[in-house]
Design a protein around this nucleic acid. Structure first.
Lengths: 244, 244
DNA sequence: ACGTATTTGTTCGTATGTATC
DNA sequence: GGATACATACGAACAAATACG
């Protein structure tokens, strides 16, 4: 039998507090991994041999402490660790993730050359319909999906970007290979929405948890826009941190 | 009978385009105010005396143009105008709203002196339980609620802040009256969530539309934290814009 | 937790007008 | 005129998401 499945009814310590400790230990110990669903209240109550009310008191304490998230009608979930994702003048995905001591990974979802939509053209200061390179990328930290980003670049300036990206797996390196030494963030525009089915699937998150929408433009040393990007980030896993 | 309720089947112009113009005019004219729900498809189709497909084609065009938002199972809603709320080193609510040519308003929801919670204490670099002033404020632009913000200040440094705020209605002025000439934003941390019932009520928004959570710290000229703030902003109405 | 009603989304099929070669 | 392609319009049925008791 696992630790924490019995309660001491004599020790003077409230039962719910013992259960709280037990569950907290299970979460910390990886018995219930981050993001996973806890067994339903009735099962846990039976396991600890207490009334459901007592169990609920313990879960309420865990929620207060930020360890779990209770969703009415769905269940109780282990709260994921939230990543502080820094956004500054020089914002590079891999560097950012490494900076916070995590393992970055990127997966190319799609790559294409296509005419620019209105938004993209505006961001890149091109005429609508101009040829742009689009890279669709899933960003991960420690194996968990963090962001889906659509990157757009002017095609005339970076004609072989897709090949370079495929070779290096890094946008910064691909841009360097195309002759761009450095670039900086001009602005970021942030809002939130509920994800489309496909976005929720890629980000491995429920559809009723919001995502952060980040629109941004990067410019070269002369201030000319070289990238327009549109990111969707899992809000349960990410805090965007802006330090001026 | 109102204009735009009949279609001309002879003029050569597609029916759906006439309907699109009619609805767009109704929205612009305030017949359907921002945020309101349009009559359901069947009703509109009957009103224009066309098939539901034809009506849907018109609504699709309106959605493409960003005038409405269609939600399966709920209905079609007039899209609210989105405010670009700038966040920079010097971020002042009223100045920001004025800068984007809108009329700012603030309503004090609550004011109190209380012991600091863990988060607040950390942000203000105080010991937990230290006395802090809390101002709960609803920010509005052109009469529409934009944000609910909990402002926290060290009580020992600003003992009469509440009175000064009640007198001037401005945090900047109240701080000035307490001897603080200027302050700047140290960082902003952004995430998103679905609103509590009370938050949705104050922000006059549906509970299934996310809010932006902004945690921020302002510091004085010497870099000492003077304000910790926790904002909840209606994501359908606000874009946060960060320019480094 | 579950069923029912409401509302939008999708997919058939059919018919008509218009522009092009 | 005829053949073809395409956009427009209507009808019916079913699927999917949501709201509500």
């Amino acid at each position: 039998m696992r630790m924490g499945e019995t309660v001491n009814r004599r020790g003077g310590e409230p039962l719910w507090r013992q259960i709280e400790r037990g569950l907290a230990a299970d979460i910390a110990g990886g018995v219930f991994p981050a993001g996973s669903q806890l067994p339903k209240e009735a099962v846990l109550a039976a396991r600890f041999q207490v009334n459901r009310h007592t169990l609920r008191r313990a879960v309420a304490a865990l929620q207060e402490a930020g360890l779990v998230r209770v969703e009415q009608g769905r269940g109780t979930f282990v709260q994921e660790e939230v990543i502080d994702y820094p956004v500054a003048r020089r914002t590079r995905f891999s560097e950012n993730i490494l900076r916070i001591q995590r393992h970055p990974e990127g997966r190319l979802v799609e790559a294409a050359v296509e005419p620019a939509e209105a938004e993209v053209a505006k961001g890149l200061e091109l005429r609508r319909g101009s040829s742009v390179v689009r890279l669709e990328r899933l960003g991960m930290a420690d194996g968990r999906p963090i962001s889906i980003t659509s990157h757009y670049f002017p095609h005339h300036r970076f004609p072989d970007l897709i090949e370079h990206f495929r070779a290096s797996g890094s946008i910064t390196k691909a841009l360097a290979a195309q002759g761009l030494a450095d670039y900086t963030r001009k602005f970021s525009r942030v809002t939130a929405a509920l994800p489309e089915a496909e976005e929720a699937r890629l980000l491995q998150q429920p559809r009723n948890q919001p995502i952060l929408l980040v629109e941004s433009v990067n410019v070269d040393a002369e201030g000319r826009p070289i990238e327009y990007a549109h990111s969707r980030m899992a809000a349960i896993r990410v805090n965007l941190v802006f330090e001026p």
